[in-house]
């Protein structure tokens, strides 16, 4: 997994609540058996005027010029500002894969749906929860200032605005550790293999019907 430590980048405002993972990456693109290549289809139905097909070259498709990520001032966006309950719906990890492939490393919103939130950390993306007021303020600032950039520092858990104002955010210690070091959590869990085996031995005695039944 890609490490996340500290980054500065263009922020773009996606001003709608309940952005679902169908919207982030529509179903026809879930047929891929790879983890990469989803970036050109990120927000496909909002971004293009036509219906996208898997494996299609997107460079000639008609763009929806109104969509925030198509506006020239947001070229190279790496931080997405969003409203409440971002990432709701389907558990598809293709959603963070698409965001990451597009170049987005941070999503800032007042709240996230849990499965999406969790999936981000597995892919080097940092979802940040700030208060409604803080998110509102960022929306106002980004819309008023072309080239608006934010700095996100995971080590010290702050978002820094161009004026130097700092907004602190919370992050689980374990997730922070994994992101900062780009760690694969399967390897970490396998360090406890003996404890898993001990649990299993006990479970086998208590609930023998859960073992060797499905084959």
């Amino acid at each position: 997994m890609k490490k996340f430590t500290k980054m500065t980048g263009i922020a773009a405002p996606l001003d709608r609540a309940n952005v679902d993972t169908d919207m982030i990456i529509p179903k026809q693109f879930l047929k891929s058996i790879k983890r990469s290549g989803f970036g050109p289809n990120l927000f496909d139905e909002l971004r293009y005027l036509d219906e996208g097909q898997p494996d299609q070259d997107c460079s000639g498709r008609p763009l929806n010029e109104e969509f925030v990520l198509n506006k020239p001032r947001y070229n190279g966006t790496s931080i997405l500002l969003a409203r409440e309950n971002f990432g709701c719906g389907s558990s598809r990890e293709h959603a963070p894969w698409a965001l990451e492939d597009f170049g987005i490393r941070v999503v800032i919103a007042p709240s996230f749906a849990e499965i999406f939130f969790n999936n981000c950390f597995k892919n080097g993306l940092l979802p940040i929860v700030l208060s409604d007021e803080q998110v509102d303020q960022l929306f106002k600032e980004v819309e008023a200032n072309e080239g608006y950039e934010l700095t996100v520092d995971l080590e010290s858990q702050v978002v820094v605005t161009p004026s130097g104002a700092e907004m602190a955010f919370e992050v689980d210690e374990f997730r922070k550790h994994c992101l900062l070091n780009g760690l694969d959590d399967i390897g970490l869990t396998l360090q406890y293999a003996d404890e898993i085996k001990a649990y299993e031995a006990k479970a086998r005695q208590q609930s023998p019907w859960l073992f060797d039944a499905i084959k």
Binding site: R35, S91, R92, E93, P96, I115, N118, N119, K122, N123, D185, I186, T189
Partner: peptide
């Protein structure tokens, strides 16, 4: 769960 957790 997401696919990373399926693998986990």
């Amino acid at each position: 769960v997401g696919t990373s957790e399926v693998e986990h």
